[in-house]
Computed example of a mutant assay.
Amino acid sequence: MAKILAVDDDKRILKLIKNALELNHHEVITLQDPENIPIEEFCGYDLILLDVMMPEIDGFELCQKIRSTVDSPIIFLTAKTDESSIVKGLAFGGDDYISKPFGVMELNARVEAYLRRENRGKSTKKLVYGDITIDFDKKEILVNNNVIAFTKNEYNICEFLALNRGKVFTKQAIFEAIYDLDSDTQFSVITEYIRLIRNKFKEYNCFPIETVWGVGYMWK
């Protein structure tokens, strides 16, 4: 059983989500107006479902506001599936999208997939490449003992490439390694993730990801 927060201004959608996820014995907390809720109230959940188009504060803004404090996966619920919106949401720390309208079976399948991924057995080993340390237990990447604030998917991309050091992967191959095959997200967002990752490493004069032109990316 997982503890899940659903945020949407439409109480009918919240009722649908609550009824659907409770069929799998999850505890579902619903929130219709998140604007003035303290950040700490968003902590302690195993997963957050977050509507994008809300009247007082949209889901992108809310995700950006809480992401530095909240470690759980955040899945957007949205009818806005154009590439620019997807890139914006993921850059703010979202993990995936579910397109509206969605069905009960799709919702449950996507939620269960993320919960399984979060509950996989953790490794206790570390990888050290020069100044970079990847701690698989804590899901952290450090440069000269400084923790870099990666989002969950940014970390997952780094971990995947680092574990396959020296191998070149296309954007689609990287996408398939970190997303479910039925994800609504488009694999072209990998380019934006790589840009964000590089910018964070660049602050430490560190450049571990190399572009192999016409093919993809590799961890040097």
Score class of each variant (00 low, 15 high):
E159G: 00
F160V: 00
C206A: 08
L77D: 05
E83S: 10
Y179P: 01
V7Y: 02
H25T: 03
I57P: 05
H25A: 07
E203S: 11
T191L: 12
V52D: 06
K200V: 01
V168P: 00
N156Y: 06
R198A: 09
Y193N: 03
V128I: 15
D10V: 13
V128D: 08
I209C: 01
I74K: 07
F175M: 05
I190F: 06
K200C: 02
W213N: 12
V212Y: 03
F136G: 02
N119C: 09
G216F: 02
G93E: 07
D8T: 09
E61P: 01
P38D: 07
P38W: 06
R120T: 11
L127D: 12
E106M: 12
K220H: 10
D131Q: 15
D184Q: 03
E41I: 00
E22G: 09
A177C: 05
W219G: 06
E22C: 11
E159A: 15
E112Y: 04
I4Y: 10
V28E: 06
Y97C: 06
E106H: 12
S183C: 06
D10G: 03
I209D: 00
V87K: 11
F136M: 10
V104Y: 01
A173R: 15
M105T: 15
A6S: 13
N145T: 12
T133F: 00
S188P: 02
V189Q: 04
E140H: 13
P34Q: 03
V7P: 02
I190M: 14
Y114I: 05
I17F: 09
E41K: 14
I4D: 08
I157K: 06
D180W: 04
K122V: 07
D10Q: 14
